[in-house]
């Protein structure tokens, strides 16, 4: 059981805080001989597995590095094109690192504001007036819990589907926010939260909540 990550969205839909607690994005490193059995393609400026799942390498995984050199988009850090490197026989045997790409800060900001819109849409779709909006989204691999304060700030936690007590955790995070972000006179409202005290106390809350859940 685990809390995966926490997002805080201000009332305009802007992401003001994001924290990844447990990473569920394993990386697989493997040495390949020529020819490569995995079919790769460029998608969204990344080199992605298109076909040929094997071992723990799944369709959708991205090439994160080759021979220890990190990938940046479809190029390696030293400037070489990944597909060209993989096409040349003289480079084999070759060590490739696969994994799910981490969300970039920009992507997180985009997703947060998209969720904000979905939340608003869900309120309008509701046949009953005064709907609370999305409180929980459930998938087979994680649950998204959302709590919106009366002032319009959304606290979102992504957790393991079996994690219990997330509502209390979100309430607690609201308290941490009101204490360590808002009571810090140098924090300006609605702006990204960069306060160390806030971060440490938030982590403590999450850990407590995880411990309480496993203790049950």
């Amino acid at each position: 059981m685990a809390v995966l990550s926490v997002y805080i969205i201000n009332k305009a839909g802007g992401l003001i805080y994001q924290y990844d607690h447990n990473s569920s994005r394993p990386e697989i490193e493997k040495t390949f001989g020529y020819p490569l059995e995995v079919v790769l393609k460029v998608h969204d400026d990344k080199v992605v597995v298109a076909f040929g799942e094997r071992d723990a390498i799944k369709v959708g995984h991205t090439v994160l590095g080759i021979n220890g050199i990190q990938a940046e988009g479809r190029f390696l850090r030293d400037g070489r094109d990944i597909l060209e490197v993989l096409a040349a026989e003289e480079n084999y045997p070759i060590n490739i690192k696969f994994g799910r790409p981490k969300l970039t800060t920009n992507e997180k900001i985009m997703l947060a504001s998209m969720f904000h819109s979905l939340y608003t849409i869900s309120c309008q779709l509701s046949p009953e007036p005064r709907s609370s909006g999305i409180e929980m989204l459930e998938t087979d691999t994680f649950k998204l819990h959302c709590f919106q304060s009366m002032t319009g700030i959304k606290f979102i936690a992504l957790t393991d589907p079996r994690q219990v007590g997330v509502d209390q955790l979100l309430k607690k995070l609201y308290e941490v926010y009101s204490d360590y972000a808002l009571k810090n006179p140098f924090y300006s409202l609605d702006m990204p939260i960069r306060c160390e005290l806030f971060e440490t106390n938030l982590q403590v809350c999450i850990e407590q909540s995880e411990r309480a859940a496993t203790g049950m």
Partner: peptide
């Protein structure tokens, strides 16, 4: 006030 209200809402169980 604009900061205090969040503290108040977070700590008291007051609804709308």
């Amino acid at each position: 006030g604009i900061r205090l209200i969040e503290d108040f809402l977070a700590r008291s169980n007051v609804g709308r």
